[in-house]
Structures are given as structure tokens and as C-alpha cells.
Amino acid sequence: MAQVSLRKLVDADIKLIETHFQSLDGASESQWFGFWNTNSLRARLAQDQFIGTQDGALSIALGDTTVGKVDWFTSTAWGRANTSACWEIAVGIFADYRGQGIGTQAQRLLIDYLFTHYPRHRIQATTAAQNIAEQRVLDSLGFILEGTVRKSQWRGGAWHDQLLYSLLRDEWQPSTKSQLK
């Protein structure tokens, strides 16, 4: 298998995101929230290439092929935002590339990136209670399950529970080599 890496988003990636994540099959049951305005993606790319002080996104590449994206954003501060904010991460893999370990590798690279380049101490992730695959990924990366956020996500015409996971900087074992392009 070609090597998984992360790189800054480019114009061509936006079209792929539109194509792959604008349907139930493309987004997956756990991440399909209906159609959304993708014009904001182009505006954000022009504004700051998705590298901001409060959030960001990178393309996931398998060799030279874009296969998804990772995101991070400032999440609920567990106190004052200027001292207690944490990152929340998310991953989206195009349907044809799921189940190959790419998401695990991409999230590992994203965690390395965030802990290397930003001083935040906590990264968290939420996943649908029925998304066993992502729960296994988070466990394998060293995240700790903190609990259930009850009926917190509206999707598919119903409220769904989310599981909250966290990873602290001093718990993280960085990769030996970075795969950022």
C-alpha cells in the first residue's frame, strides 16, 4: 500500500469533498447530516487555506491520491477559553478507501501535527455510539473513553448518542517520522 500522508487542501480537493461527502453513501451513516453549502469551502480555501488559529483541515493522501480529509476545531473549553480550550478532531475517508487503516494513520499524523505545532494539552473526539470501527481506532491511538453525550446529535431524523474520547499531550506517543507534505 502507498504511504498515507497529510497535506494542505488545494482546489482539486474541494471538488472531491463535494463529490464524495454529499450523499449518505459517500459520507456514511454516522456523518450524513444532509446537503450542505460547499461554497464556504472555496471561500475558506481562499481566506487561509484551512489553516486557522481556531480550526483547520488537511487532505489525506494515499501516495498522490486524495482519499479524504481530517479536521480540527476548538471545542468546548473546560473553563476559560483562553486557558482551557482543546482541539476536537474529525476524519472523513472516501467510501472506496474505508476499512484499510487509512483513517487510523491519518488521525495519528494529525495528532502528531497538533501536538507539535500548537500548545494545547488535550485533544478530544466524538463518535456515534454505533460506530464501532471509529471507537476501535480511538482506542488504538490511546484515547480514553470519558462517557456518553446523550442524544446530542440530530441525524437521519432522530437524536443520537455520541461517545466522548480524549487524549492528553503527556499520554501521546509521537510517530517516529512525520508524513506531512
Rank of each mutant, 00 (worst) to 15 (best):
A125I: 00
G99R: 10
S40P: 02
S30F: 14
R120K: 09
C86D: 06
R98K: 09
P119Q: 09
D13P: 04
N82A: 06
G92P: 01
I111F: 13
A43W: 06
S59L: 03
Q124Y: 00
G34K: 12
D64R: 11
T38W: 10
Q107D: 13
G26C: 09
S5T: 08
C86E: 03
A129V: 15
Q31W: 11
D11C: 08
F21S: 01
F73H: 02
A81N: 14
G101V: 02
Q22A: 12
T66M: 00
H20P: 03
N131H: 14
N131A: 08
A125H: 01
I51H: 14
Y113I: 03
I17P: 06
W78S: 15
T83A: 12
A85F: 05
Q130V: 13
H117Y: 11
R44L: 11
H121V: 07
D112E: 01
L41I: 05
E29D: 00
R44H: 06
I123V: 04
L109T: 03
R80N: 14
C86H: 05
G92M: 10
L45T: 04
A57F: 11
D96F: 01
T116Q: 10
I123M: 01
D13E: 08
I60P: 05
Q54D: 13
R122D: 01
G79Q: 01
T76V: 09
F73N: 04
G99C: 09
L16P: 02
D96I: 00
G68T: 04
T38C: 09
Q100A: 05
D112M: 06
H121P: 07
T53E: 09
L114F: 04
V10A: 06
S28V: 07
H20S: 09
T66D: 00
G79T: 00
A77K: 09
T76N: 15
L45E: 02
T116F: 09
R7N: 05
S28C: 11
G56S: 01
F115M: 08
A85E: 03
I111P: 12
Q22Y: 12
I93T: 06
Y113D: 06
V67K: 14
G34A: 05
H117G: 13
N131S: 14
F50A: 02
Q124W: 03
T53P: 08
T38M: 08
D25P: 00
T38A: 15
A77C: 11
R42W: 12
Q31N: 10
N82P: 05
A46M: 13
D11G: 13
A95N: 11
T126R: 01
N37D: 10
Q107R: 09
E29S: 02
A125L: 03
I17G: 04
Q105N: 06
S84Q: 15
H117C: 08
L6I: 00
D96G: 08
E18M: 12
S40T: 15
D71V: 01
Y97I: 02
G103I: 13
W78F: 15
T66Y: 00
A85L: 01
T127V: 00
S5G: 11
I93A: 04
F35K: 13
T74R: 12
S59C: 01
L62S: 08
I123D: 05
L58T: 05
C86S: 14
L58F: 11
E18R: 14
H117S: 13
A125Q: 04
G79S: 07
F21W: 03
T74C: 10
R98H: 12
A85C: 05
L62E: 02
L9V: 04
I51K: 11
T76Q: 14
